[in-house]
Amino acid sequence: MTSHTFTEERLRNFTRNVFLKMGCPPADADLATDVLLSSDLRGIDSHGVARLSGYIRLWEKQRINATPNVRVVHETPTTATVDGDGGLGLVVAPFAMKVAIEKAAIYGTGWVAVKNSNHFGIAGYHALMAVEKDMIGISMTNASPLVAPTYANERLLGTNPMCYAFPAGKYPPVVVDMATAAAANGKLEIAQRANLPIPEGWAQDKNGKTSTDPNELKAGGSLLPLGSDKDHGSHKGYGLSATVDILTAVLSGANYGPWVPPFVAFLEPPSDPVGEGIGHFFGAMRVDGFRPTADFKQHLDNWIERFKSAKTVDPTKKVIIPGEPEYAFEQERRVSGIPLVEPVLLDLNELADKLGIERLGN
């Protein structure tokens, strides 16, 4: 598929202008832009600027508050609940992680649950905020119900990603950032744009039969949990997804399970909500609360080196450290630019015309 490459600065200016047109204060527009661009830089194209139109459509439906009063509504010395006031998750989530980090700086750990928020971008962005302070970062969110639990033929859970990030010494952080579904919905969207089939085990049709059609969700099908089916461990993915849903929403007062509002504007939220908005959960743990930071980093470096030197089945392959491919993408794209496939560029240019801002290109 044809793609067009843009500098980080060009995409950053464009994205910021979109959020300003939405009515976001300049500081919020800058922050939301940084979260989205981090996704594109790290090679997670499904969660970057390709999502801009989705945020605008939700804002037009008055389902995103561009000027939220994000605030702590309940707390103890080490925990807090944040009300996002319907704001962009791209703004609400960093606020909440900052609260967790501030509590951890004083007490060793900080834990924050969030309600009344929206899609927060990639989980890795928020977890890495803690790594910058020599802390272990934890970030997770629930999401629109697209996933059928093991044995079910009903959408009850989101892709519900979770991320754990660890500071290393001479190596990049170890970042375990993953959906608890067999694949994130964004992966299906990428396959749709490229007109390619999806791997078997990612989705099932409306009758519960496995499918390789990337448009299956639009036809009433559902995504499958991590593990695909019971014979391949889907109960484990289902369990992880359930854990995310409980920590992010049942704990915070957000909507959970099938009551989570959809990210797409053409679908209305459930008429019988059990909470407020989408939920997130964040944790920050000071490494020196367990052992000297230098010791931890030295041993994590040793861990990385040992795993990278592992014998492999295929001598042309090597063990990949979690977060390593994304770090490599970021180093390369900061220099050579960020590619956008033709359908995404067309969508963004249509958005520019609609908002009255400069197009990215023809």
Rank of each mutant, 00 (worst) to 15 (best):
H4M: 09
H4W: 11
N17K: 13
V18E: 07
C24T: 13
P26K: 06
A29F: 00
D30W: 07
T33L: 05
S39C: 12
L41S: 07
G43C: 09
I44D: 05
S46W: 06
H47D: 03
H47N: 11
A50F: 09
L58C: 11
W59S: 08
T67C: 14
N69I: 05
V70P: 01
V72P: 05
V73I: 15
V82R: 04
L88P: 04
L88N: 02
L88G: 01
L90F: 10
V92Q: 03
M97E: 09
W111S: 09
K115Y: 07
S117W: 01
S117N: 07
N118G: 11
Y125N: 08
H126W: 07
L128Q: 15
M129H: 01
K133H: 14
S139Q: 06
T141A: 15
P149G: 00
L157W: 06
G158K: 06
N160C: 08
M162Y: 10
A168V: 08
G169N: 14
Y171G: 01
P173D: 03
V176P: 06
A182L: 00
A182E: 09
E189N: 13
L196E: 15
L196H: 13
E200N: 07
E200S: 13
Q204E: 10
D205K: 10
N215R: 12
N215G: 08
L217A: 02
L217K: 06
S222V: 03
L224M: 14
L224N: 06
S228C: 08
K236C: 03
Y238G: 01
S241M: 07
D245R: 00
L247S: 06
N255W: 03
Y256W: 15
P261H: 10
P261V: 09
F263T: 12
L267I: 15
P270N: 12
S271Q: 14
D272I: 07
V274T: 13
G277S: 10
G277W: 03
H280R: 03
F281K: 03
F281R: 05
G283V: 09
M285T: 05
M285P: 00
D288T: 02
F296H: 11
H299R: 15
H299N: 13
N302T: 12
W303T: 12
E305I: 10
F307I: 13
K308Q: 15
D314Q: 02
T316C: 02
T316D: 14
V319F: 15
A328K: 14
A328R: 13
Q331M: 12
E332T: 12
G337N: 00
I338Y: 07
I338Q: 05
V341T: 10
V344C: 02
V344W: 01
D347E: 14
D353G: 04
K354T: 11
I357L: 08
E358G: 00
G361P: 09
G361I: 11
